[in-house]
């Protein structure tokens, strides 16, 4: 469970999130809002990439400020641009990199990489250069790189923004098939079908919090 307790974040003197209080327990949670509304800032708070100026964020009781390592071992993060997330030259090497902090035996690493490649249907590109893959393939590699360490929660920050519709659908379908809790920040409301809860962020505050049937029409109405 993630608890956001009266959190305020200021960036360069501007209040980006203003006294936000949330308890996140649902299996599928969507976060929508305009550019600059604070939704990506909220996402970065959830695994301690960003620390609040006021208030606390806890994951399973671990404060992101004092227990960053424990938090990040539970909360995986998928970025918008996979090029920033993929570090090693080949797909298999990049997946193995995600296990380095766990300090596993080489044979165990090989086994985990092989299983993860198979799980994400990437086995055929294990030795391919990651930078030569398509955008959708890169995002799947980035996702596999996060999921190889088996986090309990996955936070996705606009994972389909740089992708065409076909690849975006492929990535969202893969994310939908994950068994862990997923929090997805997105501009594409059509990707929130089947979600349990949707948060609408506006000017640093939670403007609406409810089921997709309630929150999405409210968001779309605010745009018109």
């Amino acid at each position: 469970m993630i608890s956001v307790d009266h959190v305020t974040v200021r960036l360069q003197g501007r209040v980006v999130l203003d006294d936000v209080a949330l308890s996140l327990t649902e299996r599928r949670i969507g976060v929508i809002g305009d550019n600059g509304s604070g939704k990506s800032t909220l996402a970065k708070l959830l695994n301690g990439l960003l620390l609040p100026d006021e208030g606390t964020v806890t994951v399973d009781g671990f404060d992101t400020r004092s227990h960053g390592k424990e938090v990040r071992s539970r909360v995986g993060f998928l970025f918008q641009n996979p090029d920033n997330q993929i570090v090693m030259p080949t797909v298999a090497e990049d997946l193995a990199l995600g296990l380095k902090p766990l300090r596993l035996e080489a044979e165990r690493v090989r086994q985990c990489v092989s299983e993860t490649l198979e799980r994400f249907a990437l086995s055929h590109m294990a030795d391919r250069s990651a930078h030569l893959l398509s955008g959708g393939e890169k995002q799947l590699v980035a996702l596999a790189g996060v999921m190889i360490s088996e986090p309990d929660i996955l936070v996705c920050d606009e994972p389909t923004t740089l992708l065409d519709r076909r690849n975006a659908a492929l990535v969202m379908k893969t994310i939908a098939g994950l068994s862990c809790m997923v929090i997805t920040v997105t501009h594409h409301v059509e990707h929130l079908d089947g979600f349990d809860r949707v948060l609408v962020i506006d000017e640093g505050r939670v403007a609406h919090d409810g089921t997709p049937d309630q929150a999405i029409p409210s968001y779309l109405e605010s745009l018109s």
Binding site: K69, Q85, G145
Partner: peptide, 8 residues
């Protein structure tokens, strides 16, 4: 950010 998120 990506490296921190991956536990480094």
């Amino acid at each position: 950010d990506a490296l921190v998120a991956r536990g480094f």
